[in-house]
């Protein structure tokens, strides 16, 4: 899998900000990406050392557009733990 396609966007929420303080960063990633792909992609993109990747598939919500309910696509969330001391500036603010 091409590294450039793995990471979709960072997740910036209250919860992810708290995790950020522990050196763990949260991304939305391609649903087909493996933990290895994610680790490589993060190391390549941010020049840091990844020690652990946790992933989960977030089920899409059921929404109603007009008459029939439809399901939004599922997506994959990855929580990436970095080596102690490494940070990702994207989350830390410009």
């Amino acid at each position: 899998m091409s590294l450039a396609k793995v990471l979709r966007r960072p997740i910036v929420t209250e919860k992810s900000t708290l995790l950020g303080a522990q050196g763990r960063y949260v991304f939305e990633v391609d649903s087909d990406a493996s933990k290895h792909d994610i680790a490589k992609a993060v190391e390549w993109a941010f020049d840091v050392k990844v020690v652990k990747v946790n992933t989960l598939t977030v089920p899409g919500k059921v929404k109603r557009y007009g008459r029939r309910p439809s399901k939004q696509p599922d997506w994959k969330k990855a929580i990436v733990s970095l080596q102690a001391g490494d940070t990702i500036q994207l989350f830390e603010g410009a």
């Binding site: 997740i11 910036v12 929420t13 209250e14 992810s16 900000t17 830390e92 603010g93 410009a94």
Partner: peptide
């Protein structure tokens, strides 16, 4: 988005 009112940290608000 992603934060309750009054809970966003300084750097996020500044951004």
């Amino acid at each position: 988005p992603g934060f309750r009112k009054g809970k966003a940290p300084r750097n996020i608000v500044e951004q």
